[in-house]
């Protein structure tokens, strides 16, 4: 076989990957248009596109660009960072059951934010909120990886994650328990369910800088994830600074998840599900999975947020509730698929 022959077989896989990524991008754009069209005034995707670019009636322009765009942009960005975080954690830990919510990151971020609100340190639109959420998320992921240690197996990771998310949940409950103002408690409870309703450009500005920074940190490590497929020791022998990689992933996930949770509350299981959806089309290369997983995360959250507005119900279903209702059975399915590794003590 010649060099050309080797490169040829590779080009096929590359074409498939690029094709899948482009198709998914188009799907995300379509979902955005649908998302912008849904509400008390229904607009077709075409009318939405027109309004977005300054056409159509003034009313539809206001509805699309000022009322609905923030919600759609948040769904896009938050879905993306959750998918990216899941793929990055799975790459770092070489483990298909890794994800932010299983490690207690969103739950901890929520605790950080709730604490700030309950103590009256800041109102819900101040930068103190994402900062507190990010610090708490960083603490949880850092703590988890320190407890689990290097080369930790599935069981240890999941048990530590369970402990940390339970602890964060209990701490949040304690804060609500001790809060004296019943309206405040109600507000926190609703916000914890995770929702994109009534979000403004202020919220977008609150979350975006952190999401973009976190995403950039995670993407910058994409090649290191690939080398890490051979284990930490071999990756190090290939010139990967494994300690720095871990710090980048922890920080990136904390920034992204913290920023996201600060404006929407906890939205779970997108990070777990998104990379799994993409592996059949993209392959298992953890570096190449990052961007497609981000796109899949956007698509999932946009779709879920469209669904909660379409599903007929007496009161609003929160999007975080829906993603968990769908995500947990998927998690159970993954456990079933991985049970040999779990039960065999390979962990």
């Amino acid at each position: 076989m010649s060099v050309e022959a080797v490169t040829l077989t590779n080009a096929d896989a590359a074409r498939r990957r690029i094709g899948a990524t482009l198709a998914l991008s188009a799907f995300v754009v379509l979902l955005m248009l649908i998302s912008l069209g849904i509400g008390p005034v229904r607009l077709s995707p075409l009318a939405v596109a027109e309004a977005l670019f300054g056409g159509g009636s003034e009313v539809s322009q206001v509805i699309v660009r000022e009322i609905r765009l923030p919600r759609t942009l948040l769904a896009l960005a938050i879905g993306a960072i959750l998918g990216l975080s899941g793929a990055a954690l799975q790459g770092l830990l070489r483990n298909p059951l890794a994800s932010p919510e299983l490690f207690g990151a969103p739950q901890s971020a929520a605790f950080g934010a709730v604490l700030v609100i309950a103590l009256g340190l800041a109102d819900v639109r101040s930068y103190a909120l994402p900062v507190a959420a990010i610090i708490a998320a960083f603490g949880s992921v850092f703590g988890l990886l320190s407890i689990a240690g290097r080369n930790a197996g599935l069981l240890i990771l999941i048990l530590s994650g369970l402990a940390i998310s339970s602890f964060a949940g209990a701490a949040t409950a304690l804060v609500m328990n001790l809060a004296t103002n019943p309206f405040l408690v109600l507000e926190i409870a609703f916000w914890l369910l995770g929702s994109l309703e009534d979000r403004s450009f202020q919220h977008v500005m609150l979350a975006f800088p952190f999401i973009v920074a976190g995403g950039a940190m995670l993407l910058s490590q994409r090649n290191a994830f690939r080398a890490l497929s051979l284990g930490e020791e071999t990756a190090q022998s290939l010139g990967v600074d494994v300690g720095r990689l871990r710090l980048f992933v922890i920080s990136g996930v904390a920034l992204g998840v913290g920023g996201a949770v600060a404006v929407t509350g906890t939205i779970g299981f997108i990070g777990l599900v998104a990379p799994h959806l993409m592996r059949p089309a993209i392959g298992h290369d953890p570096g190449r999975l990052l961007i497609p997983s981000a796109l899949a995360g956007s698509a999932l959250l946009l779709a879920a947020d469209i669904a909660v507005r379409i599903i007929p119900s007496t009161s609003d279903i929160k999007v975080g509730v829906l993603t968990s209702i769908i995500g947990v059975p998927f998690f159970l399915y993954l456990i079933m698929r991985e049970r040999r590794a779990l039960g065999g003590g390979v962990a």
């Binding site: 080797v6 077989t9 590779n10 896989a13 070489r94 483990n95 690939r226 080398a227 890490l228 497929s229 051979l230 284990g231 071999t234 290939l238 392959g283 298992h284 290369d285 953890p286």
Partner: peptide, 14 residues
């Protein structure tokens, strides 16, 4: 050890 089912060629290329 290889943690993901990658093609042999990609492993060698690492």
């Amino acid at each position: 050890i290889v943690h993901w089912p990658l093609p042999a060629r990609d492993i060698v290329a690492l």
